[in-house]
Simulated scan of single mutants.
Amino acid sequence: MGLPALRSGSSAIPAACLALAAAGCTPEPVPKPFAQTGELVALSGGDAGPRGACHTCHGMSGEGDGNLTPRIAGLDPGYIARQLIFYADGLRQHEQMSWIARQLTDEQRSHVSDYYAGMEPAPLERAPSVRLACEPGAEALYLQGDPERGLEACATCHGRDGGDAQAGSPSLAGQPAPYVAAQLRAWRSGERYGDPQNVMLAAAQAMAEEEINPLADYIARTGDGSDRPGFPAECPSPRRRDPRSGA
């Protein structure tokens, strides 16, 4: 049985025609605008929304805050992407970062990692270091490690000046001392893990608690010309190391 003929002047359109018309003009899916570039993810937060925008904590140039928020500009893109996955999967704990990482798509994580990796790290203003004269052991730990304790030299993976890191390892030059110290303690306690071959876990657990702050201070001042030693008069009286305070 055929379709009924349309009456002259009638606006009635058979349902079959409507279906055919709709099938022929279905629009292509519109891509999410904030998934297209790393810059847009950094500024908008991508799927995490405005409260997940990277620049609100890490700065417009990825420079960090000089305290507990790290510099992410110039880091290895694979390292950044891997940390976002760790946050999303719970291997690395931070309330805000874990929430943000879970909202982002794989594409957004990749784009924003490439975006910050391509940034030139901005120099930070720092006062001259006093601890390098007072704690010469920090420089030795960074450059040489301590084979007797199985403690690998930081420079092996992160470079002598903290900026020439191996692929997949973060550059350390200019990272804030409080952030570095907090991460060393997280590695040492086992709260942070997931590095290849557990190199960081083993190194941090071989360190003594009193070595962490001086080493973090040394790391924070590598590669920026501010590692000038202080005057001996500014150094506190030396204390004998307690042999019970090892790893």
Rank of each mutant, 00 (worst) to 15 (best):
A204E: 06
D227F: 00
R241E: 14
V41P: 01
A23Q: 12
E120H: 09
T37V: 12
L6T: 03
E139P: 00
L40Y: 12
E107M: 05
R149D: 11
A53I: 02
E28K: 04
V30L: 15
G66E: 11
Q197E: 15
R131W: 15
N198Y: 14
D114V: 06
E210I: 02
A19V: 01
E39L: 10
P33F: 11
P33G: 04
L132Q: 10
G194D: 14
L151W: 10
A35I: 01
G9M: 02
A117W: 15
G24T: 03
S226L: 13
V30I: 15
T156M: 15
G52A: 02
Q93N: 06
R131L: 15
A220H: 14
A186L: 11
I80N: 03
S10I: 03
M200C: 12
D195S: 09
P170L: 09
P170N: 06
A16M: 01
G174L: 13
R149C: 09
G74D: 07
Q183H: 01
S61I: 01
A117L: 14
G52H: 01
L91M: 14
D76Q: 08
A23K: 10
L40V: 07
I219Y: 08
P50K: 11
A81G: 02
A22L: 09
I100Q: 01
I100V: 08
P50C: 08
G223M: 04
H111T: 04
L201G: 07
R131N: 13
A181R: 07
H94G: 05
R82F: 15
A167M: 15
S171Y: 10
G46N: 03
C154M: 11
P170Q: 11
Y193N: 12
M207W: 08
W187S: 02
D195Q: 12
C17R: 00
